[in-house]
Each structure stands twice: as C-alpha cells, then as structure tokens.
C-alpha cells in the first residue's frame, strides 16, 4: 500500500508529496506486529538507499508468507532534491537533516519534517540510509551518537555492516532525523555507505542481507537469513585519523578503499595539471585501515581525502570476534553434547 505522508502545493501546478510503501503480512495485521522503517533520500544527492528500498520490497514480495511484521519503506524524503541533484531542499538551500523534529506550524520545510517524524515515530527500528556525499566513499557503516551507544550498538551489530562508529555528541546534530527519533524512544540507526550520486550494488545487497537479519531478530521475518558479518567497533575519537589535503589540487589515489595500510604507505598524490608537478604526497601517518577515501578528485586546502581506523582497533575487534566465534563453536559443541546426552537419556 502506497501512502502519502505529507503533501504541500507548490506555487505553479505541482504538489510535493512524500510517500511510503507499507508492506504487511499476507494474512493482515493484529495490531501487535513489530514495525521496521527504512528511510532514505533526506539528502537529494545520496542515492545508495534507492537500490536498498527496491531490493527490500522485491525480496519481501517474493516470499510474502515469511513476513510477520510491518515494513515501511520511505525512499524519498526530499523528492525535489533527488529530482534536481540537490543535496539540500532546493529553493530554500537548507539541509533537511538540520530541520528535525520540524514544526507543523512552521514553514514548508519544517512542516514536512514534522509530518515525517509523526509517521515514523513509534517504529521498533528505523534505518536512515545515507551515502556519504559526492566527495567521499564510505565502507558500509553505522554511526551512533555516544548518547545512544548502549541502546543502539547491539541493534547495529545485526545489520551486516563492516564498521560501527560511535561518535561524540554535538549540539548541532540535535536537529537531525536520527537524533530526533532516538530522543523520542524510537531506535534509529544511521547507515553511511558508498558515495553520493552513485549506487554501489554490492553494498546495497550487503545491507539488505543485514536488514533481513535484523527483521528476523525482531520477529518481522521468518525466512532464512545469513549470519551477519562481525563489525569493527570504534568508540574512541582517537581511533580515527583524518587525512586532510595540505594543498589545493587534483587528488589521485594510490591505494584501494578498505585497504590495510602501514605507516608511511603512499595513499595518493595531489597534483597540479597546469604545472605537471606533484604538490603533495599523502602518506599514511599510522598503521590502519582506510575506511573513507576521496572519490571526487578536486580538492581545496583542508578537503578530506580519507579516514583511517587505527590498526590496534581493527586487531582488537578481530580478536574479540575470533573469541566470539570460538565461544559460538563451543556453545554449538555444548548444545550438541546436551542433545547427545538427551538422546542417551532417552535410551
């Protein structure tokens, strides 16, 4: 069922509508079902979530009998932005993700934001899919405000992302969609993956697997799902090293995204095509994994060209995950033994 959740007339012969697609179990609802909301397109230039929305609906419709809860898909929170390749809300030049929780008595943008919050509020989980921006490519990750760490990290672990980044609280971020919902007891995860203006299908498929896994854990899906990958978790600001351009020029990478680097490795160069010279050679200041890399070549002094997660954090996560896997195996063995013992008892 496709429903318009907010609408407003534009000046000349057009109505702006924000729509959602609600999918319910084949046998109808009892009112006790859990609800997951998948939201994307708050920034009009971030398109990775478009494929995820499509693929979620496609897979659910293929196995409708496995659906035991409510799935709400909101593919375009900022339809004018998506249509005009504009990050913010066109005409207002406002970042939509700084307008929440909105205001029904406010201007058009605040009014739309208020209706969005009203509709999504009360979901048992909300996934807000972003795609970095047009400049940077991100590994599939979930970003969590430290204020909501204890609540959200366990949910995030089920979503098959590679990385969970717990970041510091900031007053400015209080007007985001996710903060507005989290502060109103609706758990909301912010996914960042891929790059603006593009669709990275493998990341989309990876997240879709994770969302089905989460739905299964929530009791919304009873179909088969894959075991989610174990994410690296960073909770300390010192875990992440930022690489900013020291010179204005054209960035040419020398390494791959999500590559593990040693201190001193050549990450890329900033070149000057007019003079034909290298303006700056960017080398890794630490051992670590490159989870963000610049995609858009033109850089100004200060432009972010990459982010590194320190090697010790990556290793620590791997050790924990290896331990978890070992415990899992031991648990399986114990279960097997219990079963065998039970079998023995029967005899």
């Amino acid at each position: 069922m496709i429903k318009t959740i907010a609408s407003v007339s534009l000046p000349v012969d057009e109505v702006l509508e924000i729509k959602k697609h609600r999918i319910i179990p084949a046998g109808g609802v009892t009112g006790k079902e859990k609800r997951i909301s998948v939201v994307t397109g708050i920034h009009g230039d971030e398109l990775e979530g478009q494929y995820v929305c499509y693929e979620m609906i496609r897979r659910i419709n293929e196995q409708k009998d496995n659906l035991t809860g409510i799935v709400d898909i909101y593919p375009a929170m900022n339809p004018l932005g998506i249509d005009s390749i504009t990050r913010g809300i066109p005409a207002f030049d406002l970042d939509m993700n700084r307008l929440f929780p909105g205001n029904k008595d406010g201007d058009m943008t605040e009014y739309m934001a208020a209706y969005i919050i009203k509709d999504v509020l009360g979901s048992d989980a909300v996934i807000d899919i972003h795609a970095s921006n047009i400049y940077l490519t991100e590994i599939p990750q979930i970003r969590i405000n430290e204020l909501h760490r204890d609540w959200l990290v366990p949910i995030a672990k089920k979503t098959n992302v590679d990385f969970i980044w717990v970041h510091g609280a900031s007053t400015v971020l209080e007007s985001t969609f996710a903060y507005s919902l989290n502060s109103r007891n609706t758990p909301t995860l912010v996914v960042e993956m891929g790059v603006g203006m593009r669709i990275t299908k493998k990341y989309g498929d990876q997240l879709v697997e994770g969302l089905f896994n989460l739905m299964r854990e929530m009791g919304i899906w009873k179909g088969k799902t894959k075991e989610p990958r174990k994410p690296i978790i960073s909770e300390n600001p010192d875990d992440v090293t930022y690489l900013n351009a020291a010179k204005s020029g054209v960035f040419v990478p020398n390494v791959k995204h999500w590559e593990r680097l040693k201190k001193g490795d050549h990450i890329g160069s900033i070149i000057d095509p007019l003079k034909g010279v290298v303006l700056d050679k960017i080398v890794s200041p630490v051992d670590g994994i490159l989870f963000t890399i610049r995609d858009y070549p033109i850089v100004s002094e200060g432009s972010l060209v990459g982010r590194l997660l320190r090697e010790e954090v990556v290793r620590a996560s791997e050790i924990v995950n290896e331990q978890i896997s070992k415990n899992d195996r031991e648990q399986v063995n114990e279960n097997t033994r219990d079963y065998m013992d039970g079998q023995k008892g029967e005899f």
Binding site: V8, S9, L10, P11, V12, A91, G106, D107, M108
Partner: peptide
Amino acid sequence: PITYANTA
C-alpha cells in the same frame, strides 16, 4: 514573486 504554502 512566488510563495510556497505554509510560508511566513
């Protein structure tokens, strides 16, 4: 010269 709805 134009205005949106709900605009102050």
